[in-house]
Write a protein that binds this DNA or RNA. Structure first.
Lengths: 150, 150
DNA sequence: TTTGAAAAATGCGAAGC
DNA sequence: GCTTCGCATTTTTCAAA
């Protein structure tokens, strides 16, 4: 169904360097025809292996406050809380984790006031949320999307 | 220098839906010429407002173990540790935070063994790392790149 | 699946408003 | 800063190997 081979990985690596790289250029680099690259890319897109997106620099669009929040939930409430949180556009990432926190979310806000409002007025009022461990980002060192591909 | 106006935000919103959306289509939607869209996009790219990338589904390329690790560091060691961690391809995100953890990183591994190796053999041996709070992802609920843009 | 070539669409540069 | 208009490049389509 989606057995990727070495050529697929190479294509992904080239696209990770630049999402707008022309198929014809990748074809030249891999010494196959442009049609081969296209058919493989379309297949991977169909199978959900990757997608073409843009990465916006949050600071440049006025999202100056970034936070990672660890949430402790009552047993059995994880799914309901996660579903509820999905609706918030501020929330970029939600995962269930083993470790100190049941849920960890990453969220972007316009300012501190918005963050405080989110935590005190929204998060705290969700059923089953017992505790929220708020970490506010002071400095970002790395934020890449180029994964290690074989 | 980089004062974005409403049209820029609209362009970003359209591109967030699909990084391969043609400039001419965006032009039609916003009722301006293709050249306008192109020059604005190039200006934003030049100013680092956004970039064209691909988002690879980690699971589809064999990165089955995802972790968020909170790191407690000795006072004054944050920068050095962060710089050192940047070199690891497994590490996708590094940020300095106020809150329980000085540094928080997100990293992707092929399997549990690789994660354990990273924590025990690499992370633990870095000067100034006092404690690592490892959270292993059990389930992902959201991982979007469409920020809330005015 | 991959290829090759023709057709369609997209992106680019320059000139003018 | 926006538009128009040719030109170059890229993407799409499709028949054939």
């Amino acid at each position: 169904m989606d057995n990727l081979d070495q050529m697929d990985f190479s294509i992904l690596n080239y696209l990770q360097e630049n999402g707008k790289r022309p198929y014809s250029e990748i074809a030249r680099l891999l010494d196959v025809s442009e049609g081969t690259i296209r058919s493989r890319i379309n297949k991977m897109l169909k199978n959900g292996v990757f997608e073409f997106i843009i990465h916006t620099n949050p600071n440049k669009v006025g999202l100056n406050v970034q936070a990672i929040i660890g949430i402790s939930t009552q047993l059995g409430c994880q799914d309901a809380i996660a579903s509820h949180l999905q609706k918030y556009q501020e929330v970029r990432f939600i995962g269930a984790f083993s470790g100190k926190h049941d849920l960890i979310i990453q969220a972007y806000f316009r300012d501190n006031e918005s963050l405080v409002h989110f935590v005190n007025e929204e998060l705290s009022k969700i059923d089953g949320v017992m505790h929220a461990d708020v970490n506010v980002e002071l400095k970002q060192f790395k934020d890449t999307f180029s994964y290690m591909i074989p």
